[in-house]
């Protein structure tokens, strides 16, 4: 049936909606496009015939159905791409400007391009805010405390804080640090937040 493959793409995306970004299904997209190409060509032929011979209306329904299938395929493809982009955008807010390699491998070339462009415009925007810029990606929820307790998971050498003081990050030492300074380290897995 027409549109089956496009639906499969949507299903696939929906399946790991809550998980990480799934791999870009290049094969699936290509197959849908091919299907659309076939449908389009068949429609072209029939329509040409209809225009020539207005008395024979038999193929009109077929054209109608093919047209709807085309529309539906298009919609599904767009939904697939758009939702992936939305996901990538939210990843940018979660992980910062550098994505972990396993996520990056799941993105198509065009998506990577879009990601870098998005990064750039976001950075430009953040720089334009106030004097010296403002990092919007931090503190998405209002923090309960300015400082948090963290445990160091690996040896990382010295960390210099904003106020100029330094902290030595050694494996299995515990620290009480400003949240803003160590949030990215927690994301990278160097520190662990103790609750």
């Amino acid at each position: 049936m027409f549109g089956e493959k496009a639906l499969e793409l949507i299903r696939e995306f929906n399946r790991n909606k809550d998980g990480n970004l799934g791999p870009y299904n290049e094969d699936g997209v290509r197959q849908v496009l091919e299907e659309m190409q076939v449908l389009y060509e068949a429609n072209q032929n029939d329509v040409a015939q209809l225009v020539q011979d207005t008395s024979d209306q038999t193929s009109l329904t077929a054209v109608q159905i093919r047209h709807d299938s085309l529309q539906r395929n298009k919609r599904c493809l767009l939904a697939y791409l758009y939702n992936r982009l939305a996901k990538i955008r939210s990843l940018r807010w979660e992980f910062g400007s550098v994505l972990p390699p396993d996520i990056k491998n799941n993105m198509s070339e065009k998506e990577v391009q879009w990601f870098t462009r998005y990064n750039r415009s976001l950075a430009n925007y953040m720089r334009s805010l106030g004097p010296g810029g403002l990092d919007l990606t931090q503190d998405l929820q209002p923090p309960q405390n300015v400082y948090i307790e963290v445990r160091c998971v690996e040896d990382r050498g010295e960390l210099e804080l904003n106020d100029g003081s330094k902290v030595l990050l050694k494996k299995n030492s515990l620290h009480y640090l400003p949240r803003s300074q160590c949030e990215h380290l927690i994301r990278q897995g160097v520190l662990k937040h103790i609750t």
Partner: peptide, 11 residues
């Protein structure tokens, strides 16, 4: 924690 004193614990 009450006074927001930054600390490092080392065993």
């Amino acid at each position: 924690r009450c006074d927001n004193i930054q600390y490092t614990l080392v065993p």
